[in-house]
Design a protein around this nucleic acid. Structure first.
Lengths: 419, 419
DNA sequence: CTGACTTCGTTCAATCAATTAACAAAGTGA
DNA sequence: TCACTTTGTTAATTGATTGAACGAAGTCAG
């Protein structure tokens, strides 16, 4: 009964018109929640008998729909409500943070059934792969679901990833991850298609799905954590770039006079906006104490933000300084992309309006086309939910190809000659 | 027999499967040049009788195909070759330069039938609209084509345009164009759908179609003329941005220390890379003579480039300076988008390798993900051909909706009740 | 130059899915 | 209780695609 086997069972022979209409019905059901056959007929502009017949397939032969009960009558025979069978399969989303590993088990609609988080094993490498698989297994057991029905997996990893080959090229703070074929390892162990992407991209997907960026076609998610990264969404689609480097804005140079000093010099965004840079600035030290005392830069940043919130002039000055660099970088990004929205995430984003106002002031002096600015509404869950969202994307296309999105009547392969 | 009337004549009653397959055939014919019915059957995976029947429609009823002759036998009955009827309708592309107005008349495949160029009337405004329409009319007459068969028009205008409403918000060097509803004016006079877009975007489309960017999904066209503009192509599609400001990189700030000085200060790209800025730099003056002597900045730039090509140290120094700013801007753009290719166009691009090498050197010090760099292969024709290309896009979708790309069986509207 | 073989395209009957029309089912409301 | 609505199914019709057979128009070998 696993989806895998169902794929095999489905005869390829069905002419495509029917398959395509089946898919249309399924999508209508997913969009329009519980809905009657009559409602589906209106929504898809198919005739009632056709809908009945296709629903029959979807209900009993395929198993992707279920009858969910009787609806209110509106003056006639009450409708039989149909629903997408969300438990036809399950999704797993994984967020590999440099400190925390989060795993969620959801149904096909992305509804979270269970989740768990543990400290990331700093050794990285295959140990982490073990950790993920174990936790995923535990979540299946805990919720009493069949792990054979795992349908797709999304993984957000810190650092640089090659989405096509599913490799992690290098991971921030996880020395054990260098050119790790994460996707292949996971697919082998979990028996389901896996997509690996970097954390900023995943966070962007999360915000697009259930965060600040719903309905927004063009936006950028700014991950302001240990480093600075961006997830770029253009035309509703994540844009990853030719070398998977899109959004690596930490390399931006904001001082032509310093461009000769190679990566990481004073002219570069990274030197002014990363948590490291913030925590180790002069003013910052005067707030959080001498360098080296605070092992955790994230904590130092949090302290500075707290001070700023309570009106500490030195802390506000740190934000001012930060905003000049960040704002200029954002302005340059806006000059290139003209997005409708920029979402701030990561530790620095907890400064909230203190940050947004300062950045907006800078940006508005540089470019005329101001985007909307918002703080991530998902916070630390953005990456995890983004991973789930990307698993949903895989599931979507798997369902589509399976049910026959494939255009049109395909003749039986290997057509025999005339003789 | 104009396409317009044909659209009306086509009964909407054809069930969609047939319409959709007709479209598939048409596209296969356009892709695969002259091809037999048997070839089409293989290419589209439709059965021979179906192909015959649909081709019959397309040939005689619709008129979008024509038989073009008999092909070589490959050991059996020789094939009857079919072709897309490129003269089913015509396209017009217009490039409104600040100095030259170019107009081309092409067939539906974008093959240029005739073209003409005249000096742009600096008065701008509706006078220019007249000019365009007149020239277009002349081209129809000169080639003996029926102007009633005009199928789509693309117009590239300098400056800022709102593609959705078809308005020119403001045009560089054309004071008469301020918030001009160019699309509506032209559609009223020409009787065909019109798309208006800015010159950098059109040039990008041109390079995508028949220039350096063929087959490239993610690239940026840099228009280095009087100002600096970019046409941004992401995922094969032009990206225009939320306020139609995408690619307005002249606003980029490359010197945080100068960000307070508002638009146009020393920190901004525009102040260093535009033809004005180049021609009026100190070193530049020492080559081309005192300021004000050369009315034409474009000519001054050309002089400098010529000098550089012949090894003039001062001219090369101008390029060096330019490359630092341009390279930094490009690097920032690359940090955001990671394109596969950057195409240089406009007057400054005539510096060729002298420019590319210098820019590449700067970019390679700032970001690790170097794109390919190329000089526009279309030169001054990029915008014009881009305008044609965008007209083709319109034509494509017009044909598609007309032939019924619209997904699936649509019930007769206003379905009468059960009674 | 004839006959076997290919390839191209069409004719014809069969198939399959969607539609219309009619009807059964299951309610509301006067 | 009866007229009316809305939902869903059954039955007959329509329309498009297909497979098989066949005619058309060539090549190629002996």
């Amino acid at each position: 009964m696993s989806p895998e086997s169902a794929v095999e069972n489905e005869p390829d022979g069905l002419p495509s018109m029917r398959r395509s209409n089946r898919l249309r019905l399924l999508q209508a059901v997913r969009r329009s929640g519980p809905i009657s056959r009559a409602g589906l007929a209106k929504a898809t502009r198919l005739s009632p008998p056709t809908v009945s017949s296709l629903v029959e397939d979807l209900l009993h032969e395929v198993g992707l729909m279920s009858e969910v009960g009787i609806g209110e009558s509106s003056g006639g025979r009450p409708p039989v409500l149909l629903q997408f069978n969300r438990e036809f399969g399950y999704l797993v989303g994984v967020d590999v943070g440099s400190r925390t590993l989060r795993v969620a088990l959801t149904d096909l609609q992305g509804q979270v059934l269970a989740r768990q988080q543990v400290p990331t094993d700093p050794a990285g490498g295959e140990i982490l792969v073990d950790q993920m698989c174990t936790i995923a297994g535990e979540l299946f057991t805990a919720t009493g679901r069949d792990r054979g029905k795992l349908y797709a997996v999304g993984v957000g990893a810190p650092g640089m990833t090659d989405v096509k080959s599913g490799r992690v090229i290098r991971a921030v703070n996880l020395p054990g991850w260098v050119d790790l074929p994460l996707r292949d390892l996971l697919e082998a162990r979990l028996g389901a298609p896996v997509r690996v992407d970097n954390d900023a991209n995943m966070a962007a997907l999360g915000e697009r799905w259930r965060g600040s960026a719903r309905q927004v076609k063009d936006f950028v998610f700014l991950a302001l954590g240990a480093g600075v990264g961006a997830g770029v969404v253009v035309g509703g689609q994540l844009h990853r770039g030719h070398h998977w480097y899109a959004g690596e804005i930490s390399h931006m140079n904001l001082d032509v006079r310093e461009w000769r000093s190679d990566f990481g010099g004073r002219g570069y965004l990274e030197s002014h906006v990363g948590a490291v840079a913030i925590a180790e600035g002069e003013r910052a030290r005067s707030i959080v104490g001498p360098a080296g005392a605070g092992q955790e830069r994230g904590a130092a940043v949090a302290t500075i933000i707290a001070a700023a919130r309570s009106g500490d002039a030195r802390a506000l000055a740190v934000l001012d300084e930060l905003a000049v660099y960040l704002g200029t970088a954002v302005a340059n990004l806006v000059a290139v992309l003209d997005p409708a929205l920029i979402v701030f995430g990561g530790g620095v984003s907890h400064a909230g309006d203190l940050l947004i106002e300062r950045v907006r002031r800078v940006v508005s002096r540089i470019v005329p086309n101001l985007p909307r600015f918002e703080i991530s509404t998902l916070g630390d869950d953005a990456q995890l939910l983004g991973a789930v969202s990307s698993a949903m994307d895989i599931a979507e296309s798997r369902l589509a190809t399976w049910l026959g999105a494939a255009s049109f009547p395909r003749r039986a392969v290997g057509r025999t000659g005339t003789r």
